[in-house]
Design a protein around this nucleic acid. Sequence first.
DNA 1: GGCCTATTTTAATCAACATTAAAATCCATC
DNA 2: GATGGATTTTAATGTTGATTAAAATAGGCC
Lengths: 210, 210
Amino acid sequence: MTHRADLQDMSEIKQWHADKGPQYRLKHDRLLRVAAACFNQKGYSGTSLKDVARQLDLTDAALYYYVRSKEELVYQCYRRAADLGTRAMARGQAAGGSGLDRALSYLDHHLEALCGEEGPVAIMSEIPSLKPGHKADILERSRQHSLDFEALIAEGIADGSIAPCDVRMTGNAIMGAINWIPKWFRPGGPVSATQVRAQFTEFCRRALGA
Amino acid sequence: MTHRADLQDMSEIKQWHADKGPQYRLKHDRLLRVAAACFNQKGYSGTSLKDVARQLDLTDAALYYYVRSKEELVYQCYRRAADLGTRAMARGQAAGGSGLDRALSYLDHHLEALCGEEGPVAIMSEIPSLKPGHKADILERSRQHSLDFEALIAEGIADGSIAPCDVRMTGNAIMGAINWIPKWFRPGGPVSATQVRAQFTEFCRRALGA
DNA sequence: GGCCTATTTTAATCAACATTAAAATCCATC
DNA sequence: GATGGATTTTAATGTTGATTAAAATAGGCC
């Protein structure tokens, strides 16, 4: 499924970051978080590189020391978001208990990443305008994530902890609810991250539970 | 809450469309649907007016006979989406039965609009880059819609048809799931609109039901 | 102090669209 | 088949913001 071009893209990026020191990594990560916040708050077309740079006390041109292009900046934001999701999924899968328990564990971990200190996570609303290789990569990860979640649901149904339902649809519904969270949740807002975590998992427990 | 500038914007738009005939209205509506499809599939920044125009067998310049700017095109797409939501909400509120019944009725109507013949509905991911007046208008409608939905949930809790829960959170979760649907649902795809409607409402019934 | 690398800035450049103005075409009606 | 409004095209124009190249600065290390 993966084209030669994609692999090339991937390795290019690895090279790009490979030799840089830890200072670099730190700033690069900060860039990604700031950019994600901008994209979520001001929209993709609404945020210029200058906007992002200003928040980092930098010139727009300076960003090109960290990313090759705006497109790549978006891509890396999405990649970061996908990575956080994947990590949460791995933890959920590794958790003990019934299918329901593990599904909820995953959700809780993901919510923690979304609302917690890991900083703002980019909503993936501009996937289509990524260049082919990057788009394929993100879509692939995204697809895998969905499949993993559906698998958890299926296991839950099998072991009787989750009520029988259309796995695909249910997965999509919950994923949608998750993905939409950055739209309405603001750290430091009226609702705390802890509350969201508790209430959201509670919601899913009821939605899924047998 | 509404500024003078906003009102001005609104009336300007009314004037713009007021005198035109029914042919015009028809084509204008088609434009909005095609544009919504483009924005959803190719992203906002990924769709040029030329793209939209091509699908209508028109030149990009011709679109300016129907809209004043790209920004306004987006705004009208969002407005159309909001209107469909509002209509569904009105029908749901007017339906009989318990709070749960009415909430589900609203959802069903909204799903029908989203997946049915009314054509593709724009995902509102670029609200921030609307100009102030338009942004305020859309946000206001959106907020109202959420409030209405939360009210339905509250009524359901009051009459015992919906299990006690945090109304705001639950509303946000379900709205998120709804708003995300255009991301994965493709008319003519593997899953029919009817199936989505049935399964999604079923999901919400379980999530909400007492 | 001098050197080397990492980081950032200044000052252009450049391209992609959005947008506009004027002209052309289409179409119903007289 | 001529007239007038509605609709669309052709051909520029403009502006924004991404991108680049070369120069400047900062800081660790000898």
